[in-house]
Design a binder for these strands. Structure first.
Lengths: 252, 252
DNA sequence: TGGGCCAAGTTGTACAGCCAACTTTTGCCC
DNA sequence: GGGCAAAAGTTGGCTGTACAACTTGGCCCA
């Protein structure tokens, strides 16, 4: 009886999902790409069928395998899905691409939020917030302007960081902040004067804008950000299956 | 003992999810927005706790409610997530917005696929495909150019439709075609000559491009499309949560 | 050869129960 | 009143069972 090898931390179905993902990426499961039945997997890994189904649901949601009543599951593609954190963190995303993330903090200030900012973050009027402006680079080429708002308790942690700290997101995670949900809105805007100057593009040049909001497990807002990308440097990919969606960024 | 009222078709957890979604949207669950416990819901609806959990997992994945061990679930927001079909079908999306979808089919042809098209659709070289070019309007204003490729068996159905059929997607669904997964890639391109002429914008004007691929339950490609939107007419929103794993059991 | 039917295999849905992990409330003690 | 510990309440995770719905392949028969 085989044993899950993907580490010993976390829930069993998570480890099993990681195992199966690896097996799929490695190209196990023959040329026809048919997975063993749930029952077989359950016996192989020494867990119940319910646990196997939980693991497979993860892979299914990521578009890695089919699932259809009456027939075995089939491998669809090799893990192109990025993790939640790669989407959340520019630094991780860049590293996953094999590129060198960079950037500098241009401005960071603490001040009372204006009404529209309060609404974005879901705070009561007059609450204190932090504003952070950063220029982000990929292999030394500037590709993105990031304007982030943090509520006070989060912003205070950011302000304590080294000024050149690469990943704010990772630092927050290390301090115990839990990112549970994000919402991304993608559209197209024209570069304002500041954008053009910092990114080195023409004023009014078209930019891809990604606005994101992150909350913790209890639904409390953690950050709100307006990111503007130079076109051609990035593409957004959404995998959408009947019950769930997963978003990821791609190098354009 | 209350009974689920959301229709009598489909799985129970799905009907329950629809019920709860409605209740959330209607603003039940008091001002604090705390949901009843899983046990209470199970008794109210006369189902087991497992079924309640399946229903709640759907809402959780859509970002409607929190879920955190040790404390009750809390309403996060009212269904802002567009459903799978609204994302898949321009017509449904437009209707959900309260706008009048329109458009006309400019060209439809059947011919052998070139190599790159074969790869997009995952077909063997030389396979027959259908190409459809449509101009889409929202309240009579042209906002999108849609270039779609269909494999032969799907395209044949499209060709049989009335020439002015509004929603190809809905027609296919009625004929028993099942859309199970889509992948959308969003980036920015500049208008080509055709685009500019049809959309009435300047050549080289920036456009938002959405390329989408849809497959059925078995992973067989159903369509591949290149859609180009006039900026300012559309934004893409994605909800992304760590709890995709919360999807306990799902249907294909 | 072709079509139809049946049986085996597989996933989907639902139920019941148990314990663990975590949060909130209660109540006691100082 | 404040602080701390215990208890109650709630969700997460895992198992086991049973049946329904569906696909596939083989068999039989015309």
């Amino acid at each position: 009886m085989a044993v899950a090898g993907g580490g010993t931390t976390g829930a069993r179905y998570r480890r099993l999902a990681a195992d199966l993902r690896e097996a799929i990426t490695a190209g196990s499961f023959g040329s026809d790409g048919r997975l063993p039945s749930e029952e077989q997997l359950a016996q192989q890994y020494g867990v119940s069928r319910g646990t196997v189904r939980q693991a497979l649901a993860v892979l299914r949601a990521n578009g890695l395998v089919t699932s259809r009543r009456g027939t075995r599951r089939v491998v669809l593609g090799t893990a192109r899905t990025q993790s939640f954190f790669e989407l959340l963190s520019f630094t991780r995303w860049a590293r996953a691409l094999g590129e060198e993330p960079g950037g500098r903090t241009i401005d960071i200030e603490s001040c009372p939020a204006n009404p529209s900012e309060c609404e974005q973050l879901g705070l009561e009027p007059g609450a204190q917030i932090y504003r952070v402006l950063r220029l982000r680079t990929l292999s030394r080429v500037p590709i993105m302007i990031e304007r982030t708002l943090y509520p006070e308790h989060i912003g205070a942690m950011i302000a304590r960081l080294e000024h050149d700290a690469m990943s704010h997101t990772e630092s927050l995670t290390e301090e115990g902040v839990v990112f549970a949900d994000t919402e991304h809105t993608i559209d197209l805007v024209h570069a304002e004067a500041d954008d053009a100057r910092l990114l080195g593009c023409a004023p009014d040049a078209p930019l891809m804008r990604e606005r994101r909001r992150a909350t913790d497990q209890a639904g409390r807002p953690l950050l709100w950000s307006d990111d503007r990308f130079v076109p051609g440097t990035i593409a957004f990919t959404v995998h959408n299956s009947v019950a769930t969606t997963a978003l990821l960024r791609r190098r354009g």
